[in-house]
Simulated assay, not measured.
Amino acid sequence: MITIISELLESHLSTLSNRLNLQIVYENIEATPNDEIYLKSNILPAITTSFDLESESRIYKGIYQISVVAPINTGKSRAQQIVESIIKHFPPNLELMRGNFALYINSVPSAYPAITDKTTYTIPISMDYRADTLIFN
């Protein structure tokens, strides 16, 4: 299921990145820094649990983190505007579906303090997701 979860979250982010003309750097892909702002996508799965007596149905939970990465010394305004766009694009209770599989954003996306290093200014945004699978015999 992690493949479907990744595809649903990243596809939804891709819609916004295309509209804002931003590159996305996905997990296990090396970033090639340039002089432009880009997005970094990370999916952090949590423990999968079950809610039925036979342990066949599953609850997939985790955190989706999107980082807005700007070149150092370019100011913060544009990066903050992008953060606001991402938060609006992933509202609480957003439902993303593929077939009969539904994933929900079940928290308010939150921006965290910026992280600055020698070359980048990064603002992380995190949100919780949840997907339940139901098995009926």
Rank of each mutant, 00 (worst) to 15 (best):
V108F: 12
E27K: 07
R58H: 15
I37Q: 02
A111R: 00
S55I: 11
V69T: 03
N106D: 15
G99Q: 11
P33C: 05
I123N: 04
T133P: 13
R19V: 08
N18P: 00
E10V: 07
G99I: 09
S50L: 01
I47G: 10
S85F: 04
H89K: 11
F101D: 04
V68H: 03
L39E: 05
P109S: 06
H89P: 11
S67T: 04
I29V: 15
D52M: 09
A131G: 08
Q65P: 04
A31M: 03
H12R: 09
S85N: 10
S107M: 05
I115R: 10
L39I: 06
I29H: 11
I59C: 10
H89F: 13
R58L: 15
S57V: 08
I66Q: 05
P109R: 06
T120G: 01
F136C: 03
Y38C: 02
T49G: 15
D132W: 08
I4C: 04
V83K: 00
P124L: 04
L16Y: 06
M97A: 15
L96W: 09
I72S: 05
T119Q: 14
S110H: 06
N42L: 10
L53E: 14
T3W: 07
Y64R: 09
I4L: 11
S55M: 15
D52H: 08
L44W: 11
T74I: 01
N93G: 07
I66C: 06
T32E: 09
L96Q: 08
S67I: 01
L96H: 08
T15P: 00
A114C: 00
